[in-house]
Design a protein around this nucleic acid. Structure first.
Length: 573
DNA sequence: GCCGTTTTCGGCCCGACTGTTTTCAGTCG
């Protein structure tokens, strides 16, 4: 049983309770619990076994009992009772933008509607208009909401959302009335997936900025438009929300709209204890209503008695306590990255030559680039034979003769086969500067088998890096199940480096695992896994993931300068 | 349903936008 399964289970209960008309606070209790479970670094099953569920904030005896039953039996008598009141699948009505619990319940009770298809049919035949409080406009909105639901199912990758947001921001910043424009919400926190794109602007003439926003070139339709906020849908079906505040409210608003929700709630509590009130307009004294901060984020945090907290770690997972005690981590930055340890060329499934990749890496200011093509068993993508390995080596050696202050390292992404053996014998592996071992197949094996495969690679003296450890593809393939504690501890003991793969659909290790790995004493490598020159720049998503895992430069292999890196990997000069 | 260095009972973030209202409910973030 995975944490995500338990989170979904709790969400389902929350949906049912909401439709039932339960008090919103009870509903929220289940949603909060779901979010906590989802962000949990430990396996929830372990917590159930050890009776430690209630140690999690937001989980009390009642929710703990329901989780326990669900984890142990795979069922829940409570949810089954609730499900008797509403037909199965009815909760999907709540996913339609503009349809909440009240309308869903209305549709069901008056018209017997319990699926999106039935609702769509009813709206088309204008049967919704028979209902109280529903006119033609609402019916239209329901239909549009269903269309949008079909188009934007699921959360989009950060790698999709961020470039789209940056394009809008670039355009908005050219508007004379826009003093500041910044991305907010989960993009600013660099979460791996994004729901909506939130953009914040500061201006004394909000209407002008709003008008400019809704007429930008990528905008397909305007979903809502007021005097201080607007929502649009782009040609690529991304929803973008803009909020405009006055320049003196900038810091408070940016802080507020960056979140996370849990982070803000914790800040609010701290403010209250200090006789302060904090909202998107500023920080105020509760007694006199005097506004004492709000123009910059730094000011907001300082007023609450803490250092400014980097957006990536604003998740209410210890960062506020750390900020109050002046012990925030010094998070790794993109400028700390001295080179890339994982890149492919047209020798296997990459699209560019070794020379082109080297030039692109030099253009980024790197001191080194590891060429790591696929190994022999990946036949369908030209995995390297021993002959081609040696030929590649000669080319790399020759290129290195011409470089000043830059070096190509000869690496390989060697496949960890289903039985845990590697694709080449030790004497071949010994020829490489860098060996990255990755699992590409057999991801559905048991936890024990996967763990064993990882451990045997980690204990191989020639393996330097464990590549994209969990093998997940976000929204496509679940991570493999493995004993993270055993793997991270072994990595720390052997000095085997764990990869943080920066491909936007991988981000593997994921943020929470980065933090656990570092706490276990392991080192990480932030790698682009580039398959073209342009993809080298995906490294920023890896840096963001590492930052979300509280990684500092000292934890990152490729933050080392070339000479230290070669020492660490025992590469001959 | 959860939580507590004011509380074991009484709170729980709250403001903007839309549509259908004639003063406000529902939804969203």
């Amino acid at each position: 049983m995975k944490n995500a399964d338990v989170a979904r289970f709790l969400e389902e209960i929350a949906d049912m309770l909401e439709m039932k008309g339960e008090t919103p606070f009870k509903v929220r209790a289940y949603r909060d619990a779901a979010r906590r479970i989802e962000g949990l670094r430990e396996n929830v099953a372990t917590l159930v076994e050890e009776n430690r569920l209630t140690e999690i904030r937001g989980i009390g005896p009642s929710i703990a009992a329901k989780i326990s039953e669900f984890v142990k039996t795979g069922r829940s008598s409570y949810l089954e009772d609730l499900a008797r009141e509403f037909p199965k699948g009815m909760a999907e009505l709540l996913e339609i933008p503009g349809v909440g619990a009240k309308k869903a319940r209305l549709f069901y009770e008056k018209l017997g509607i319990s699926t999106v298809e039935q609702l769509e049919e009813a709206a088309r035949s204008h049967r919704l208009m028979q209902l109280p409080g529903i006119q033609e406009k609402t019916e239209q909105n329901v239909l549009q909401g269903i269309q949008r639901l079909k188009q934007v199912k699921g959360r989009m990758l950060l790698g999709t959302a961020l470039p789209a947001a940056e394009e809008i921001i670039r355009e908005l910043r050219t508007h004379p009335a826009a003093e500041q424009v910044e991305v907010g919400g989960s993009i600013r926190r660099m979460k791996e997936t994004i729901g909506d794109i939130d953009i914040l602007a500061a201006s004394d003439k909000p209407e002008e900025v709003i008008n400019a926003f809704v007429s930008l070139s990528p905008v397909k339709s305007v979903l809502a438009k007021g005097s201080t906020k607007a929502s649009v849908l782009t040609e690529a079906n991304l929803q973008i929300d803009l909020r405009v505040v006055s320049p003196d409210q900038w810091g408070a608003a940016l802080q507020y709209f960056t979140g996370s929700k849990d982070h803000n709630i914790q800040l609010r509590t701290i403010a209250e204890n200090r006789g302060l009130r904090i909202n998107e307009y500023g920080v105020f004294r509760t007694d006199t209503n005097e506004r004492i901060a709000g123009s910059t984020e730094e000011e907001v945090y300082r007023t609450l008695g803490m250092e400014w907290i980097p957006p990536e770690i604003r998740e209410s997972s210890g960062e506020i306590e750390a900020a109050m005690e002046n012990r925030l981590p010094h998070l790794v930055e993109i400028g700390d990255i001295r080179g890339d340890m994982h890149a492919h060329t047209n020798w296997s499934d990459g699209s560019d030559t070794i020379e082109a990749m080297a030039e692109a890496a030099r253009a980024l200011g790197y001191e080194y680039l590891t060429i790591s093509d696929h190994s022999i068993s990946m036949t369908f993508i030209k995995g390297l034979t021993v002959e081609r390995i040696r030929e590649q080596r000669r080319i790399i050696d020759r290129l290195n003769e011409h470089f000043e202050g830059f070096r190509l390292l000869h690496g390989i992404e060697v496949n960890i086969r289903s039985d845990g053996t590697l694709d080449y014998p030790d004497e071949i592996l010994a020829e490489f500067d860098v060996v990255t071992a990755s699992i590409h197949g057999g991801l559905g094996q048991s936890r024990e088998q996967i763990t064993q495969r990882m451990l045997s690679a980690i204990h191989n003296p020639h393996v330097d890096i464990l590549g994209h450890p969990s093998g997940r593809l976000i929204n496509k393939r679940e991570p493999s199940e493995f004993d993270a504690e055993a793997v991270f501890t072994a990595a720390a003991e052997t000095g085997t480096v764990l990869e943080v793969n920066a491909q936007p659909d991988r981000l593997d290790l994921r943020d929470a695992d980065v933090r656990t790995a570092i706490e276990s004493g392991a080192t990480i490598a932030i790698d682009s896994d580039a398959h073209s020159t342009a993809q080298l720049e995906l490294i920023r998503y890896g840096v963001a993931t590492a930052r979300r895992g509280w990684a500092e430069a000292q934890h990152v292999l490729n933050a080392l300068p070339l000479d230290k890196l070669m020492e660490r990997l025992r590469i001959r000069h």
